[in-house]
């Protein structure tokens, strides 16, 4: 496996960051979308809690916090590596990434990392503050919870990036993955624990889900923030999250290597 050269990788992150600065309208629309989503789930959960004081061991303020934290970190870990690769395949721009002596996955992941770094500072932070002001959001359970949450949120980014890279590679074979992308968004929002806490799913579905990488995208960092998991259990979840990320990044390398001979550059 190619060692990731740090300086080029950081340069791609820098480019990703600069690219985010290029479009301002998208930024403002994005902020509103997140506020709207949190508001919708806030009212839904308020209605649900009218009939019982707790749901899966969570109180209403905890559930509101879960939703708010979830959407806030989504604004950070979100990336469009898959859509980007599909576009490159369709427009033949993929060739431009192949003529550079840098691993393609490194390029894609770090470009997205630059965008996420941009989001963290100028998007996630303001969204988090506004949400905290508008809705009754609780602070993190403890300093340890806060630290674990921050680490986990960063790992979430790499986990989503690894998944999206794999989804994007499908485009090399099928050329168009628009349908797959739409399905992916729906499925991922449910399975990651963004829309409802993963613990709410009935057995045996819940166990199956926890054996997959998906809950680690959103449930794991949010649960760490709330202090729903602590100590050894927290360590186990963090380890699983990191292990899945490494595994999927490795799988991405393998699939990429196998896809390369199938590349047909259209046009030109």
């Amino acid at each position: 496996m190619n060692a990731i050269a740090v300086r080029p990788a950081m340069s791609f992150a820098r480019i990703g960051f600069l690219n985010m600065l290029a479009y301002r309208a998208r930024y403002y629309v994005g902020v509103l979308t997140y506020l709207f989503n949190v508001a919708v789930y806030y009212f839904i959960w308020r209605a649900v809690f009218r009939h019982s004081p707790t749901v899966v061991g969570m109180t209403l303020p905890q559930m509101i916090t879960y939703v708010a934290v979830g959407w806030t970190i989504r604004s950070f870990y979100f990336n469009e590596i898959d859509r980007d690769i599909a576009g490159q395949v369709q427009e033949g721009r993929l060739a431009m990434n192949l003529i550079r002596p840098v691993n393609f996955q490194t390029v894609m992941v770090f470009d997205a990392a630059g965008q996420s770094a941009f989001r963290a500072a100028l998007f996630t932070l303001p969204i988090g503050i506004v949400i905290a002001l508008l809705f009754p959001v609780q602070p993190p359970a403890s300093i340890a919870a806060l630290l674990m949450f921050l680490v986990s949120a960063v790992v979430s980014f790499f986990l989503v990036a690894a998944l999206n890279f794999l989804v994007g590679l499908i485009a090399i074979r099928t050329k168009s993955i628009l349908g797959i992308l739409r399905a992916k968004y729906l499925v991922l929002e449910v399975l990651s624990g963004l829309i409802i806490p993963t613990t709410l799913f009935p057995q045996p579905f819940r166990s199956i889900l926890f054996a997959s990488p998906f809950p680690h995208i959103n449930y794991t960092p949010a649960a760490l923030y709330l202090g729903k998991v602590t100590g050894a259990e927290a360590g186990r979840l963090l380890f699983l999250q990191a292990a899945w990320t490494v595994l999927l990044l490795g799988l991405g390398q393998i699939v990429w290597r196998r896809s390369q001979h199938r590349i047909t550059i259209q046009g030109g």
């Binding site: 080029p8 480019i15 600069l18 690219n19 290029a22 030109g268």
Partner: peptide, 19 residues
């Protein structure tokens, strides 16, 4: 490739060179 550019579309040319 004359029909494409290897430079990054939305950012200053010098940034592409630095990269």
């Amino acid at each position: 490739f004359g029909q494409r550019t290897q430079l990054w579309w939305d950012i200053a040319v010098v940034e592409s060179f630095k990269l």
